[in-house]
Simulated scan of single mutants.
Amino acid sequence: MKIISISSEYIKLDQFLKLADCVPTGGMAKAIIQDGAVKVNREPEERRGRKLYPGDIVEVAGEGSFQVSGK
């Protein structure tokens, strides 16, 4: 599992996917989220605006698992 640090209180899911280098663009983030390839805390997530907080775990099909970490 990779640890991804954020400097704010939360980060939106689509922004997180770009920060974690899972996708190069927001459009691609939207596509993989809509395809059901993303889980947040083991639950399928289809909202690209989902707020992620430190401690949340994001699983991306074909990319692995990532944990959100605070400052």
Rank of each mutant, 00 (worst) to 15 (best):
M1Y: 03
K2Y: 15
I3D: 10
I3L: 09
I3G: 02
I4Q: 02
S5M: 03
I6N: 01
I6K: 05
I6D: 02
S7L: 13
S7K: 11
S8T: 15
E9V: 10
E9Y: 07
E9D: 12
Y10T: 00
Y10R: 02
I11F: 11
I11M: 07
K12R: 14
L13T: 05
L13Y: 12
D14S: 07
D14H: 10
D14G: 05
Q15K: 15
Q15Y: 15
Q15E: 15
Q15H: 15
F16E: 01
F16G: 03
K18A: 09
K18N: 11
K18L: 09
L19G: 08
L19Q: 12
A20L: 00
D21S: 04
D21Y: 05
D21H: 05
D21E: 06
V23I: 07
P24K: 12
T25A: 10
M28H: 13
A29E: 04
K30S: 12
A31Y: 10
A31I: 12
A31V: 10
A31Q: 14
I32R: 03
I33L: 04
I33G: 06
I33H: 05
Q34V: 10
Q34C: 10
Q34K: 15
D35P: 13
D35G: 13
A37T: 06
A37P: 01
V38G: 02
K39A: 08
V40L: 01
N41W: 07
R42G: 00
R42T: 01
R42Q: 05
E43D: 09
E43I: 05
E43L: 03
P44I: 14
E46M: 14
R47A: 09
R47F: 09
R48V: 02
R48H: 11
G49T: 14
G49P: 08
G49Q: 14
R50E: 08
R50W: 01
R50F: 06
K51L: 02
K51M: 01
L52P: 08
P54R: 05
P54F: 10
G55T: 14
I57K: 10
I57Q: 11
I57V: 14
I57Y: 09
V58H: 04
E59T: 13
E59N: 06
V60T: 06
V60R: 01
A61H: 11
A61G: 04
G62C: 09
E63N: 09
G64V: 04
G64S: 05
G64Q: 08
S65M: 06
Q67S: 02
V68Y: 13
S69H: 12
S69M: 06
S69A: 13
S69K: 06
G70L: 03
K71M: 10
